[in-house]
Design a protein around this nucleic acid. Structure first.
Lengths: 175, 175
DNA sequence: TAGTGCATGTAATGCGTTACATGATTTC
DNA sequence: GAAATCATGTAACGCATTACATGCACTA
């Protein structure tokens, strides 16, 4: 069981897919909070098949080799077990902008302002990307939609937070 | 220049410290959004000294060997350069709870509820930790305080978000 | 006097990304 | 006919954590 295992099992629970499909789906969806690369996916697919959690079937498209995997009963059980396993909230965060802010006391006042403005721009850019995904035609299943809305609402909150701090700073320096 | 470089330069800009001190400070402050381990810190201290960005001085406490580092002029410049370098917002997130939620459509309704409740508990636990830090005696410099408040307000927002989604779900299933 | 904290350091390990190789097919 | 996309796969690399080794000093 490693980091890609749950993504693979989870995506195959939605529907059968090839390794390539899995990577493409991840890059359009979970990558914002859970990335995965070919170097993890392909070896893990083989391992999961050996363990009987997934089953592969050759499904070439034209003359192009293609192997589609689907979840076995054991695989579905493994997914359910993982979904119900402990762990209320495990977030690993690496936020360079926050680190810069943390050290902003060592710099002139205008640098702190610039950092906050940059942070806000970053949130706004994320919002554009996520809103673009949300406006795509077709309806997502409820929880996939929920997670997408989390991303949007988080970045809205982050934008607002930066604005508030900027106002507070301006009020303080003015006084 | 690697991931620990800015933390070391930034902390030494606040005041001279030993490698041990740096690790201890990180574990009390930036680790929530920027971790660092001995395996990175000690080799990097040597490298930075060789490059002339920091200077070490033997400062034993009693018979216990101790080496305290401080920033050189070149080191301060390197820090300023990094602080002003591009990069509005680079967040790397690994959120297992979000991944579980993403796949919650494949499970019975009560599992989704449980996931949201667990997520909320996680936010509440983080709040306890961060509020404990905020209530510590002594006053933090403005931006260090700002970042701490970000952590608190983010987890407050996250708690509220979970509550709202739970209410929404209950309203939908009731109807 | 045993345990905890201070203090430095490294070797091993694990993990994930990057980059590349290969080749077919579709699209412009 | 070139470029992009589909599709599979791995080797090399870098990075970070874990775990350990060593030893002094303080405190209960």
């Amino acid at each position: 069981m490693n980091a890609v295992t749950p993504v693979i099992l989870g995506l195959l629970a939605i529907g059968p897919r090839s390794g390539y499909d899995i990577k493409a789906t991840v890059d359009r969806s979970t990558r914002f909070f859970w990335a995965a690369s070919y170097g993890q996916i392909y070896p893990e697919l083989r391992r999961l098949e050996q363990e009987g959690l997934i089953e592969g079937e050759n499904a070439p498209k034209g003359g192009r080799a293609r192997r589609v995997f689907r979840l076995t009963a054991a695989g579905r059980q493994a997914l359910v077990d993982w979904m119900r396993s402990e762990g209320d909230l495990t977030v690993e965060l690496r936020d360079e902008s926050l680190l810069r802010l943390f050290f902003a006391d060592t710099l002139p006042a205008e640098d702190g302002i610039a950092l906050l403005e940059g942070r806000r721009r970053g949130h706004e850019r994320y919002l554009e990307v996520l809103r673009g995904i949300a406006e795509l035609p077709g309806e997502d299943p409820p929880y996939i939609d929920l997670v997408l809305r989390w991303g949007i609402e988080f970045n809205e909150w982050g934008t607002k937070w930066c604005t508030e701090q900027l106002e507070r700073l301006k009020a303080t320096t003015a006084a």
